[in-house]
Deep mutational scan, measured.
Amino acid sequence: EDEVKKIVKRLIENGVDDEQIKEIVKRQGVDERIVDKVLKELK
């Protein structure tokens, strides 16, 4: 989960929008619920 957080944070800093972040992270095989949780925490 910490790995996911790092990735998502980097994507947000690069101006990637939420939908794209979800797609990218899902392609890495991460559960969507984890992605949603991380996005909420970082906003």
Rank of each mutant, 00 (worst) to 15 (best):
E1H: 12
E1W: 15
E1D: 09
D2W: 09
D2H: 08
D2E: 14
E3G: 07
E3R: 09
E3W: 15
E3T: 09
E3M: 12
V4A: 05
V4R: 01
K5Q: 06
K5F: 09
K5M: 10
K5R: 15
K5L: 09
K6E: 14
K6D: 11
K6G: 07
K6Q: 13
K6M: 14
K6F: 08
I7F: 12
I7H: 05
I7C: 06
I7R: 06
V8L: 06
K9C: 08
K9V: 08
K9L: 14
R10F: 15
R10N: 13
R10D: 13
L11E: 01
L11V: 00
I12V: 08
I12C: 03
I12W: 14
I12Y: 12
E13M: 13
N14H: 11
N14I: 14
N14T: 11
N14Y: 12
G15R: 04
V16D: 03
V16E: 05
V16R: 06
V16K: 09
V16N: 08
V16W: 15
D17V: 08
D17A: 13
D17T: 14
D18L: 14
D18I: 15
D18K: 09
E19S: 10
E19Y: 11
E19V: 10
Q20W: 07
Q20Y: 07
Q20A: 13
I21C: 02
I21V: 05
I21P: 00
I21N: 00
K22Q: 04
K22P: 02
K22R: 14
K22D: 01
E23T: 10
E23P: 01
I24D: 02
I24K: 03
I24F: 09
V25K: 00
V25W: 05
V25C: 13
V25Q: 03
V25S: 03
K26L: 14
K26D: 02
K26G: 11
R27C: 05
R27Y: 06
R27P: 02
Q28Y: 15
Q28A: 13
G29H: 04
V30E: 02
V30F: 15
V30W: 15
V30C: 04
V30Q: 04
D31E: 10
D31G: 05
E32Y: 07
E32R: 06
E32L: 11
E32S: 12
R33F: 12
I34C: 02
I34K: 03
I34E: 04
I34A: 04
V35E: 00
V35R: 01
V35K: 00
V35S: 02
V35Y: 04
V35G: 01
D36Y: 06
D36W: 06
D36F: 06
K37C: 04
V38G: 00
V38I: 15
V38R: 01
L39D: 01
L39Y: 03
K40G: 09
K40H: 12
E41S: 07
E41H: 05
E41Y: 07
E41N: 06
E41I: 08
L42C: 02
K43F: 08
K43P: 04
